[in-house]
Nucleic acid binder design. Structure first.
Length: 553
RNA sequence: GCGCCCGUAGCUCAGUGGAUAGAGCAGGUGCCUUCUAAGCACUUGGUCGCAGGUUCGAUCCCUGCCGGGCGCACCA
């Protein structure tokens, strides 16, 4: 019996008690089934009696007592105890727990997936780093977390489109072009320009692409450097992210918004809604009507649209493309955007609470020799995605970045991460998978296989370590659902570490394969199913994080 | 000054109002003629920043304070 099935059973029992007048409460649609930390508290526990106490006007233990009797009579449940303030501690019948292994194996790659977000069309924007330089360590965090979140939402049934907003318009791009031009002409890079080895590389690439470029008038040169430079950077960013295993559905060009007249249209739309005003020669959006700190300029006094105007047009474009919800991952250095973004959504006539979601994540610091390395694109002194991957590999990099809560600033110790030691928990998890793979290979060599699902006797799985493992496997669907709802992919990583540990402890106490002259038994087959189920969950979980599940290590 | 995030074991960090607050690493003691010892068992280590409040119950919610990070442009 899975936790979900148990939840339904508990709800049915509550409803029955209400039906015959033993309780007068509304039957809750959601009943919390948890896995007690203390094994003495049964396989599962529910606090439903505590939750209902107030509404029923009766002491929780009394409610628990009457539910316990009914619950214990249900098939698949061995016993029910009332404990503490009114918890119901439930012990499942042996076979009921064992079915979890069969379910995980037969569901395969779909085990853990749900349809709780089915029908939702989401646009998930992340990374969106300026195309004026390579992908930095800071952006790498959002690449890892954003992609994991996308996979997580997909596992919950949502239709997710991964999007990267390319800021290929505006003064920053011109500055980038000027820097490339200066380098190509052998001049010093402007004060506010970009530095770093890549600037030279890109400049040379542009010069090589366009014969006679340096003989052209400087203004024409600049346009070429800006356009080709950005193109080269976008290509570089894209291939870097592809190599990292992060693939976007759309690279959305800001410039297309300028060129298509979408900005003017957006301003006009907002004006129709009655939230645009003009003063001091500029065009403003009255965002303060929607909770922003101050009103925001859409078109500057010099006639140039602001970045914010492009944001407005971009949001409207996403909505026009049919997305129910626009989700944006931003670094803490952009937290100031939230207020104006919510306001623009409201000003456009949408509801910020349903159509917009901005997730702010804290920054990543690099620590070297116990000292924080400051990162600045301008000075050309920064750590790149490729530096991290070169040092620790894709798997460790993705896992390490996805394993921490985005609310938490993380320090990456360069020395620690460049040492490839088992300090990195990803090895612990991957090792469990490799270990299981090895057991299953050895089983195959002995001519042993899982066989059909109806041929395995899961009541054989009665050892405490087997029960622990079955319960852990049974948690997986709920872990995915909760992680998706909370936008917290790191929960998946933490769960996998726990699952790996539970497997290692099982492995240590429970011999799977027959040794020497021993014959395979029904227990052997049941344990093979348990191993296969564990491996499946490890694969499914690692897949959400974009990390490989090696068969050998 | 205002806004957002954080403060949990020596270190890095989990912990969606529930039972005795956890993991990895680091320290200590054991376990390999047997399926991968990149493992396991035992052990050391906590005023959950401080003070109030709400609640049957608070690491979690509210308020204030202390400490750290990041923002507060007619920049992008």
């Amino acid at each position: 019996m899975t936790p979900e099935q148990l939840r339904d059973v508990v709800r049915t029992v509550v409803a029955a008690a209400v039906g015959r007048g033993a309780l007068t409460v509304e039957v809750p649609d959601d009943v919390v089934i948890e896995r007690p930390k203390n094994r003495a508290h049964g396989d599962y526990a529910t606090n439903v009696a505590l939750r209902l106490a107030k509404a029923a006007g009766r002491p929780p233990r009394e409610i628990a007592g009457l539910l316990a009797t009914d619950l214990a009579a249900q098939p698949g449940i061995a016993s029910v105890d009332v404990a503490g303030p009114g918890f119901l501690n439930i012990t499942l019948a042996q076979g009921a727990l064992g079915q979890i292994a069969v379910r995980a194996v037969t569901a395969g790659a779909t085990y853990g997936r749900t349809d709780v977000l089915a029908g939702q069309k989401l646009n998930l924007e992340f990374v969106s780093a300026n195309p004026t330089g390579p992908v930095t360590l800071g952006s790498t965090r959002w690449a890892a977390v954003g992609d994991a979140l996308a996979r997580l939402l997909e596992a919950s049934g949502a239709d997710v489109s991964r999007e990267y907003y390319v800021n290929d318009a505006g003064a920053q791009i011109e500055r980038f072009g000027r820097s490339l031009q200066a380098v190509a002409l052998g001049r010093p890079v402007p004060e506010d320009g970009y530095q770093g080895d890549y600037v030279e590389t890109v400049a040379q690439q542009v010069v090589a692409e366009v014969p006679g470029l340096l003989e052209q008038p400087e203004e024409e040169q600049l346009a070429v450097f800006a356009e080709r430079g950005v193109g080269a950077m976008v290509a570089d960013i894209r291939s870097t992210l592809d190599g990292f295993g992060v693939h976007f559905d759309t690279f959305f060009s800001e410039r297309t918004l300028h060129e298509s007249g979408a900005l003017e249209k957006a301003v006009a739309t907002l004006r129709e809604q009655g939230h645009v005003f003009e003063t001091e020669g500029a065009v403003w959006l009255r965002t303060t009507d929607f909770g922003d700190d101050k009103d925001r300029v859409l078109v500057k006094a010099d006639g140039e649209p602001t970045y914010f105007a492009a944001d407005c047009a971009y949001y409207l474009d996403k909505r026009a493309r049919g997305f129910d919800r626009v989700v944006i991952l931003l670094g803490a250095d952009h937290s100031g955007y939230v207020g104006r973004y919510k306001a623009l959504v409201a000003a456009a006539g949408d509801d910020p609470a349903t159509h917009l979601e901005i997730q702010i994540g804290q920054l990543v610091n690099l620590v070297r020799n116990g000292e924080q390395v400051r990162m600045s694109k301008r000075k050309g002194n920064f750590v790149l995605l490729t530096d991290l991957v070169d040092a620790v590999g894709n798997d460790a990099a993705r896992y390490a970045l996805a394993r921490a809560s985005v609310d938490q600033q993380i320090d990456i110790d360069a020395d620690l991460w460049s040492r490839q030691t088992n300090d990195n928990p990803v090895f612990y998890v991957q090792y469990a998978h490799a270990r299981i793979s090895s057991v299953l290979r050895n089983a195959a060599d002995l001519g042993l296989s899982l066989g059909e699902a109806d041929g395995v006797d899961v009541t054989q799985l009665a050892h405490e370590r087997e029960s622990d493992l079955l319960r852990a496997i049974g948690e997986f669907p709920r872990v995915l659902t909760a992680a998706a709802e909370l936008r917290a992919p790191h929960r998946v990583a933490r769960y996998l570490e726990e699952l790996a540990g539970t497997y290692h402890r099982f492995y240590d106490s429970c011999r799977v394969l027959p040794r020497g002259d021993e014959e395979a038994t029904a227990l052997t087959t049941a344990r093979l199913w348990l191993c296969a189920a564990t491996a499946q969950v490890l694969r499914n979980g690692l897949d959400v994080l974009g990390v490989t599940a090696p068969e050998r290590m």
